[in-house]
Amino acid sequence: MPANLIKKNVITALAARAAGLDNGDGNPRVKQGVNRLLVDLMVAVDELDISMEEFWNGVAYLTQAGKQNEFGLIVPGVVLEHFLDLRLDEAERRAGLTGGTARTIEGPLYIAGAPLSKGEARLDDGTDDGEVLFMEGQVRDISGKPLGGALVDVWHANTMGNYSHFDPTQAAFNLRRRIETDEDGRYRFRSIMPSGYACPPGSQTEKLLNAMGRHGNRPAHIHFFVTAPGHRKLTTQINIDGDKYLHDDFAFGTREELIPQVEHVVDARETHQAGLNKPFARIRFDFRLTKQVVDAPTTVVNREHAEAA
């Protein structure tokens, strides 16, 4: 069947009517979005000569992805979550907001309500015999002033690449904590070095990536929300240097500013001082938060999260 069978003005009229632009009822913002998406979709179908079978296969794919709750993986996998970060970066730049720690994707595996500690915390429950990791740093504003009482909400995978709550073999809130910084803005935690992971075998996400000739692997990383009164919420993560997929993250989450040095400590005296009898890893990373301003787009995103059991 030849492409471009339908004139653009016919497509425009169809989309406008379907989106309700010819009436004064409904939600104007929803109508605007539906209209634009319908126009773009119908133009794509026409220009690419998408067959009815291909179209309905696409609908079936999306239906199954919804049943398996996979859109939280698909969205970063097709670069949309990173794209949203880039738009927010540019909006902040135009608003004169610079100097803060780089943001990157949240991902789909956050659970609210992790235990709260002051100053420091231990994230792991001791059941995973991975490399011990000590991570510490300061939360400061862009002038360098320490932000005491800031909240560092941290979560990451275990050595198998699995997250508590989603992995029934782990205890509730394993490798998840909220840490309130001390008066000098300092935080510190002990955990285990996380592993990267791949999207679930046989998942809709993997099927899509395979069809595009791509893999579904993420490098090892640690997620953070960092907040403080009067400052903009930071959503970010650090990636573990040396990982095979460090610069080939299927979710496009790697940013150069978010790859801290990992020090692997083997000195017996230092391991003893740390209360250990084996080598461990150490990371230092400081967070810088920008001030909250009236005219800048918000960094607080109200999105659906899984709930703790």
Rank of each mutant, 00 (worst) to 15 (best):
Pro115Ile: 13
Pro297Ser: 08
Leu38Ile: 10
Leu116Asp: 08
Glu180Lys: 13
Pro229Thr: 14
Ala268Lys: 10
Leu151Glu: 13
Met135Val: 07
Leu209Pro: 04
Leu80Phe: 09
Pro76Ser: 06
Asp49Glu: 12
Leu109Phe: 15
Phe285Trp: 04
Tyr197Lys: 04
Met135Cys: 10
Gln138Tyr: 12
Leu109Met: 14
Tyr61Pro: 04
Pro201Asn: 12
Arg284Met: 08
Leu116Glu: 12
His221Trp: 01
Trp56Cys: 09
Leu88Lys: 00
Asp129Met: 08
Glu206Asn: 07
Val30Met: 08
Ala308Gly: 15
Ala121Pro: 02
His215Met: 06
Thr63Gln: 00
Arg178Val: 04
Ile105Val: 13
Met193Arg: 10
Leu234His: 05
Glu257Lys: 13
Pro279Phe: 01
Asp249Val: 05
Glu54Lys: 02
Thr104Arg: 01
Asp124Met: 07
Leu208Asp: 06
Asp243Asn: 02
Lys145Cys: 14
Leu151Lys: 14
His221Glu: 08
Ala65His: 02
Leu38Glu: 00
Arg140Ala: 14
Gly149Arg: 02
Thr271Asp: 11
Phe173Ile: 05
Gly213Thr: 01
Asp153Glu: 12
Pro201Ile: 05
Gln138Leu: 12
Leu133Gln: 04
Lys207Arg: 06
Gln32His: 12
Arg103Ala: 11
Ser203His: 00
Glu180Met: 09
Leu84Ile: 03
Ala296His: 00
Asn174Leu: 01
Pro219Asp: 03
Val262Glu: 02
Asn4Asp: 15
Lys278Phe: 11
Pro229Gln: 00
Gly113Cys: 03
Ala16Trp: 01
Asp49Met: 07
Val79Thr: 10
Ile50Thr: 07
Met52Glu: 14
Lys278Tyr: 04
Asp49His: 06
Phe280Trp: 11
Val30Cys: 01
Asp141Ala: 06
Asn162Tyr: 05
Asp89Met: 02
Ser143Cys: 10
Asn69Val: 00
Asn277Gly: 15
Ser117Glu: 09
Leu97Met: 09
Arg303Asn: 13
Thr298Glu: 06
Ile238Thr: 07
Asn27Cys: 09
Asn239Gly: 10
Lys67Met: 09
Trp56Tyr: 15
Asn217Ala: 14
Arg284His: 12
Gly275Glu: 06
Ala3Pro: 15
Arg17His: 07
Met160Gly: 13
Asn9Ser: 14
Gly137Asp: 02
Ala95Lys: 10
Thr254Ser: 04
Phe250Tyr: 11
Gly137Arg: 08
Ala308Cys: 11
Ile6Pro: 06
Tyr197Gly: 04
Ala150Trp: 03
Ala44Cys: 07
Phe250Trp: 09
Ile74Cys: 00
Glu307Phe: 11
His221Cys: 08
Asp22Glu: 14
Ile6His: 08
Tyr197Ser: 13
Gly24Tyr: 11
Val293Asp: 08
Glu256Lys: 15
Ala211Met: 02
Lys291Glu: 15
Arg255Phe: 07
Asp40Cys: 05
Val139Gly: 10
Tyr110Gln: 12
Gly119Asn: 07
Gly149Trp: 04
Leu86Trp: 07
Asp243His: 05
Met52Lys: 14
Asp22Met: 03
Gln170Ser: 05
